[in-house]
Amino acid sequence: MGIAIFHILVFPGLLFLTIFGFVAEYFDRKLCARLQNRIGPPWFQPIADFIKLLGKEEIMPREADVIVLKLIPLFALVACVTAILYIPIWGQQAIFSFNGDIIVVLYLLTIPTLAYFLGGWYSRSVYSMIGAVRTLTQLFAYEVPLFMCILASALLADTWSISEMVTFYNHHLGYWFCNLLGFAIAIVCLLGKLEKVPFDIPEAETEIVAGSFTEFGGKLLALLRMTFNIELVVVASLLAAVFLPFGLNFHPAIIFILYLIQVFSIIAVITFLRSLFARLRLDQMIAFCWKYLAPAAFAQVLINLILKGILPR
């Protein structure tokens, strides 16, 4: 029982994720600045932003639903923190695992998007409502390819548990090459999930101020930004566990360092992609996802099904 509390609150739960989230945000902003030929913020900038926001006033619109608005950031945060418990970090086994936990993790990671929608809808401001509707519309576009790629990887391993998948790929090291197409598609869909350029349409600053998050301020905004960072870390960890070779029968400390390197590499690729493109329009984004990404993900599923029949177990 005590160990469970330790896992949930400290490692790899809330405290570890918070610190890792700040480090990931610093890394993301510094890399983006260097790519744009600037110096970038100092190392304590994300912590300073968080502390500053905690001290600011929250202004609620008269028609907004205050209780819902105050609970939304908590829902999103809790869902992300719960998801990390099923992802292996320092070994081939996660803290808890059972057959079917990959579906649970994907479901838990969809909750933040729904929470952003509800937050925008219940803010009752024109900009928030447009942003909320855009969040959901974008969800329909990137969700299908993302799920299909992750489940394709699970199909090849013939199991629905992340920890067993990691064990399978460690025994058959060459097999993770089959999933490279899925990995590429998953990273592009990740840009949509994390609402980064070119898919940051729900939070388009120059069109709808801040989209769903226009009316949030003070402590709520601080929690929301922390949720963004933690979501980045958790989803990158999921991708690292599912697509990249992991574990490899080393000492746990080395596995942990490998894990850190893999997560930072995925974050670096995401940052690079977001400095590279302009923002797409919503109809262009949906057309792109359904015309190119979904067929490619479907092709990846087909390849894995065929390979499952051919390759030795």
């Binding site: 790519l35 030929n37 350029v197 070119p198 940051d200 120059t206 400095s275 493109f277 302009a278 923002r279």
Partner: peptide, 16 residues
């Protein structure tokens, strides 16, 4: 124009 379409990189380079 780059900033309005979300292309911040173009903004940074042209202003440099």
């Amino acid at each position: 124009a780059g900033h309005e379409i979300g292309f911040d990189t173009l903004l940074m380079y042209t202003w440099r």
